[in-house]
């Protein structure tokens, strides 16, 4: 049961989006987030929506998957919408009931906020999660942040920790399942009682797990030392990231989108 949890949400594939340099994807994802918050007018939103649909189409990830990825957002959406509807200050009052008032501005703010959240989630998950493997993502982060190493930020150490955490998640889950089974075999009961009883029942799982992880960490450290690991200094990498022509085209496309949004914001009235 625990083994079925997938690591990240990577869908292997061969699309243009898969082939982009992870560094470029990280930068473009950040630009995209900024873009979404720059949009002011209705046509600008429409343009971003169109572009997002295009990204999904290019990635080869099915729209159903993308829509399903929005499911955990459901409560966040409802919550922000309600807050924006009822607690916005507006002048055009549409409806009042006791202390609550719905204004035109509040309604517009709620709708645009919801659209922004949906676009944000859909675009970043397609760019960074569905089409980028966790390892190339950490790799991209390490290399993007590598200038910070000069001012003493342990970039390599963080990247190494992330890679190893990703590596050991499945192993850890497998081990947890083994311990659960072992404790069940000795008559441990995890399913009955109230919340506090259930939390207490977890202790016989967590303690053996913790101890075994310490042992594992020590063995792993020795094995890494044996493979001549001595930190980030003087290390080379097997895969060298190089920007290709497609990376520049992707950047160009996002730049064009930025120009389009600025123009649309100028020519059309802002929604708020």
């Amino acid at each position: 049961m625990l083994k079925d949890i997938t690591l990240g949400q990577y869908f292997p594939g061969n699309s243009l989006l898969h082939k982009l340099d992870p560094r470029m994807k990280l930068l473009l994802a950040i630009c995209y987030i900024v873009l979404i918050f720059l949009a002011k007018s209705a046509p600008a939103y429409a343009l971003i929506l169109l572009f997002t649909v295009l990204i999904v189409a290019v990635s080869g990830v099915s729209f159903g998957v993308v829509l399903r990825s929005l499911k955990p957002l459901f409560f966040v959406l409802i919550f922000t919408t309600l807050i924006n509807v009822f607690w916005s200050n507006g002048t055009t009052v549409l409806w009042t009931w006791g202390p609550f008032a719905i204004t035109r501005e509040g309604l517009i703010r709620a709708v645009t906020m919801a659209i922004r959240i949906v676009l944000l989630m859909a675009s970043t998950s397609v760019i960074l999660m569905y089409t980028t493997s966790p390892i190339s993502l950490t790799d991209g982060i390490e290399r993007l942040l590598s200038p910070l190493a000069k001012i003493g930020v342990p970039v390599h150490t963080f990247a190494m920790m992330m890679t190893m955490a990703l590596r050991f998640i499945p192993t850890l889950l497998e081990e947890t399942q083994k311990i659960i089974n072992a404790q069940k075999a000795r008559g441990a009961d995890f399913d009955s009682g109230n919340l506090i009883d259930k939390a207490k029942a977890l202790i016989p799982i967590l303690i053996p797990l913790l101890i075994s992880q310490f042992r594992r960490a020590e063995e792993l450290a020795t094995a890494m030392e044996c493979r001549c690991y001595r930190g980030g200094g003087g290390r080379t990498r097997m895969t060298v990231l190089r920007f290709a022509l497609r990376d520049f085209f992707a950047a160009l496309a996002v730049a064009a989108l930025l120009a389009g949004i600025i123009l649309l914001n100028l020519y059309f009235p802002a929604l708020l």
Binding site: L7, P134, I135, T163, L166, R167, R216, E219, M224, M238
Partner: peptide, 13 residues
Amino acid sequence: NPDNQLVATIVEE
């Protein structure tokens, strides 16, 4: 223990 010697998420890495 082979699990405690492998550091990367992909074999060739």
